[in-house]
């Protein structure tokens, strides 16, 4: 299945673009996606934390992703 991942902050700078189109196995989990991305972009592994957001909520690691989900990579937040 095809996923579009929105990227922000330092994750956007590491990947070099603000959105990434990926083809992943059906039923790919949030943790699986993170593992793939850390392999492809090793600098992501050096971040203090990295979360996956699905439809505006933080996703648990075992959550299965779907094609129509709005998916984003959330590096350590620093608002306020």
């Amino acid at each position: 299945m095809n996923l579009t991942i929105a990227l922000f902050g330092i994750a956007r700078e590491i990947v070099g673009k603000s959105s990434l189109d990926l083809t992943v196995p059906a039923g790919q989990s949030a943790a699986g996606l993170l593992a793939d991305l850390r392999l492809q972009y090793p600098a992501l592994a050096g971040l203090r934390s990295l979360a996956v957001a699905v439809n505006n909520e933080y996703a648990a690691e075992d959550v299965a992703l779907h094609e129509r989900d709005e998916i984003a990579l959330i590096p350590p937040v620093s608002g306020g």
């Binding site: 922000f8 700078e13 971040l47 203090r48 590096p75 937040v77 620093s78 608002g79 306020g80």
Partner: peptide, 22 residues
């Protein structure tokens, strides 16, 4: 500060840093 997806980049005279990223 812990959960809202907003990111702060500090700009100094000699560079920039994403706050708390590492």
């Amino acid at each position: 500060k812990e959960v809202v997806p907003i990111w702060k980049k500090e700009e100094y005279e000699d560079g920039t840093v994403w706050v708390s990223a590492h």
